[in-house]
Design a protein around this nucleic acid. Structure first.
Lengths: 204, 204
DNA sequence: CCTACCGATCGGTAGG
DNA sequence: CCTACCGATCGGTAGG
């Protein structure tokens, strides 16, 4: 009757990872103690080890899954789209949207990737480079097709991508602009930046 | 004769601050131990205290002076320039140039400002907001004058500034582009982004 | 899930 | 500039 299973909360693991996400984003990996994470969940530090392998594994899980999702998003966004302008717009809107709607992940990936131990760090950096290269090739393609005007595709791709990821630093979900609106606007910024701006109707 | 002054190296203080700059930029404030900084200089940890007040003061010195310099640079750059396009271009080129030529400072300011204790942190944030607001006002001014086409000056100013500061993350002084070239190109990016792009001669 | 505890390391001080 | 040392805290383990 009172044969209750030991507290095998699967839910607790989620709480732990959620707390880590919030605290790593706020204070950084090295600025966060496991004690703080445990406190947020309402347990003691040693109990964390029923749910995680180590502090490093906690970081690895966040950074790897987030980076993989960025690449998956990108592939889905540009699939079957031929026009370079539209490909760039979709790639940028998707990336910007992720930065705005997964701010903590974006902050941690960009700030604490240096704290990731090998081989995970190299994995992550390879994935990020792949994404950056893919965006750059869209730009090169558009220049080749005569629809973009860009002096240096490398500079343009970095400028665009860094502008997007930075959304995570200042975006306030309670502010006047939604994540979707901001992402759409960044899509326009990107097109303007590569010289394919549609000169949108603006408030002049 | 052998009355040698004690090793009152004024030069050592510079070495210490230089080492802190490099290590904080590489590993973050919380990821850097004073022991590492001392090791870089070739002394023991306690000897650091002949040159600095505390680890926190080391961070404060870096972040405050760098932030103040950004504002001073901005004021000097736009002084006496009336045209909004030219004001924006100069403001952006100056800011981008600083990010490229003072990479460590830019990285630390953007990554470790959260580790700064009060009241320094509020001081720094106020200075940064002042700079951001000043850039935004140039954009608003250009829109008012009918030379810029921007839907949301807030978004545009953040996009431009974050793109510039991110230069510090990928710029390689040994690479093909100089800091000056990259800064100039970011000035063009900014003008394009606000719809005032001169459609420069590019490689198409 | 806990208490008790580990060795290591942290920033910093005493005292020369 | 050093050695010797401080209390606090770190991530993590033992053992239940």
């Amino acid at each position: 009757m009172s044969h209750r299973a030991p507290p095998r909360d699967r839910a607790t693991e989620s709480l732990v990872r959620e707390a880590a996400l919030t605290l790593f984003a706020q204070r950084g990996y090295h600025g966060t103690a496991l004690r703080d994470i445990a406190g947020e969940v309402g347990i003691r530090t040693p109990s964390l080890y029923n749910h995680i392998e180590s502090k490093q594994e906690l970081l690895r899980g966040i950074v790897l899954s987030s980076t993989e999702q960025v690449w998956a998003d990108f592939e889905a966004a540009v699939e079957g789209v031929a026009d370079a302008g539209e490909r760039l717009r979709r790639a940028v809107v998707t990336y910007a949207l992720r930065a705005a709607s997964h701010r903590r992940e974006a902050l941690i990936v960009n700030r604490d990737v240096a704290s990731l131990e090998e081989p995970a760090r190299s994995e992550v950096m390879a994935l990020r480079r792949r994404h950056e290269r893919a965006v750059r090739e869209i730009i090169i393609e558009g220049v080749g097709a005569g629809v973009f005007t860009v002096r240096d595709p490398f500079l343009a791709s970095f400028g665009i991508l860094e502008m997007c990821v930075s959304i995570a630093r200042w975006f306030d979900p309670a502010g006047p602009l939604s994540a979707g609106q901001i992402a759409a606007e960044h899509g326009e910024f990107a097109l303007r930046l590569v010289g394919a701006g549609p000169e949108p109707s603006a408030g002049a």
